[in-house]
Nucleic acid binder design. Structure first.
Lengths: 266, 266
DNA sequence: GCTGCGTGGGTAGCATGTCACCCACCGGCG
DNA sequence: CGCCGGTGGGTGACATGCTACCCACGCAGC
């Protein structure tokens, strides 16, 4: 049993599709939820960790034996990832990691701008004391995580902050959609954060936004959110261009093309 | 084999969960794609047709035998529907059709406004001759369908028109998200269209929008799109309120609460 | 040496078996 | 008469068998 790749056959050409696949983080420990979502998490982490790369074909059977579960939950989790656009299935051939293109990133942030800028404006107006406390808490948590260098915690706090603002604005659908978009750009973000050192900077970027929301200044909050998202977009688009081996210029041009009058019109 | 429910046992009490389930439209004919998506389509149609109603518990086994396929593709399709929010699973008890709440509808249209109004503006500016032709074609198709009283065709043309405008605006992610939101409100729309007679009216509502886009008048196109979406939102929110047996008032108040300054700010 | 075709390995998709679990029902006990 | 624990049916989740299908490789023919 175990993985069939372990049968002492170190064939020199590991270039054929799906030969290597370094032992995936066994899914064993986390008993919190269904196996399918554990598989989703594991695959996402494997992608961010660079253990699975785009352009290569993997198979359900392969992952299943690597994770020591059956094919059913693996297939289920992968299908859900596929629906989210993270992987793509090729009928009877396997699936591959979808490379997030710079255009995708720019589009995603255009959408997020359209949704989150008005949300920030509304949050500044509508937030009650309890909600403001929650915003403050997550803000502090983010700075805390940044100081400790804890990437994952910082990402969680960042997500929580944006989520809270959207919730306060009162649109649950927008919360859902933004969260969905976020998972697509997530690994890019992690890679970007590890390759550089903008953790403090990233946390600090939220400061004006949070301050404006706490002060109830609607227009300033909207402006701060727009600036924050634009900054993040530039960073991640550049990262995506880099990952594609494109001569990492054209960042401004790409974001401008997709955004257009967004920055002015919203 | 076949369905076990056909074993000549017309027990009089069909009130227990999931007893009835009138023979679902067998999924046999459409061989275009995987069984799972055929199941999704079939279930959606069953919901719109009123063959499956909210508040009642159904099961995978039940649907599988009704459609004469195995449980695997049914389960797969249902999970995807669940992720989209159309159905909700109750652990070890079955699943139920989720009733689309008026709040959901209002939120969905708030999001669509945020995305589609700028898209209309950009489409008016960026559309080339070929794209304008396509817009025109779909517009004509919609009027044609309205004249013929073909609900489904009209809905397709409507969707195609909005999709084209978003595509012209250059944001594929927005296309994807709007399409996703659309499937949620789809059955409500169908019900609304059948119960009243606003097919011509609905088609005519697109006229100013299309004209402005064709004329390249950005601001007018944006304004027309906003008006169109607001009108549709009012209609569907009212419909949702009606479906919930709520004293169908408060339409304005609900949309205003969710939209807030959206109508002014975008 | 180059091209066309058969063949085999591997894959996704579907069908079916199995299990732990939850809830409704029911009979006995207080 | 009301509460309460046993029990059985039904469910989702997972494991596994099976099949049509696609693609790469290799061999025969030119």
């Amino acid at each position: 049993m175990t993985t069939p790749s372990g049968s002492g056959d170190p064939s020199p050409d590991d270039d054929r599709p799906g030969a290597g696949l370094p032992a995936l983080p066994s899914v064993a420990a986390s008993t919190g939820s269904s196996l399918a979502v554990q598989v989703m998490t594991a695959v996402r982490r494997a992608i961010t960790a660079g253990e699975m790369e785009p352009g290569r074909l993997y198979s359900v059977q392969q992952l299943a034996s690597a994770m020591e579960v059956s094919r059913s939950p693996v297939r289920e989790g992968l299908l859900r990832l596929g629906e989210a656009g993270l992987i793509r299935f090729h009928r009877n051939r396997g699936f591959e990691i979808v490379e997030v293109s710079p255009t995708d990133v720019a589009e995603i942030f255009a959408v997020r701008t359209a949704l989150e800028v008005p949300a920030a404006r509304r949050a500044a107006r509508l937030a009650g004391p309890a909600e403001l406390d929650r915003v403050r808490d997550q803000w502090h948590a983010m700075h805390e995580a940044a100081r400790a260098g804890d990437l994952e915690a910082a990402a969680r706090a960042d997500e929580g902050l944006h989520r809270t603002l959207l919730l306060v604005a009162g649109n649950a659908q927008a919360v859902r959609l933004v969260e969905q978009l976020r998972t697509t750009t997530a690994f890019l973000g992690v890679v970007a954060a590890t390759s550089r050192r903008p953790l403090d900077e990233l946390a600090g970027e939220h400061d004006p936004l949070v301050r404006c929301v706490l002060a109830g200044d609607e227009e300033a909050a909207a402006h701060a959110m727009r600036e924050h998202l634009a900054s993040t977009a530039r960073r991640l688009v550049a990262q995506a261009l880099l990952a594609q081996h494109t001569p990492a210029a054209r960042v401004e041009e790409l974001t401008a093309r997709v955004w257009g009058d967004a920055a002015a019109g919203y």
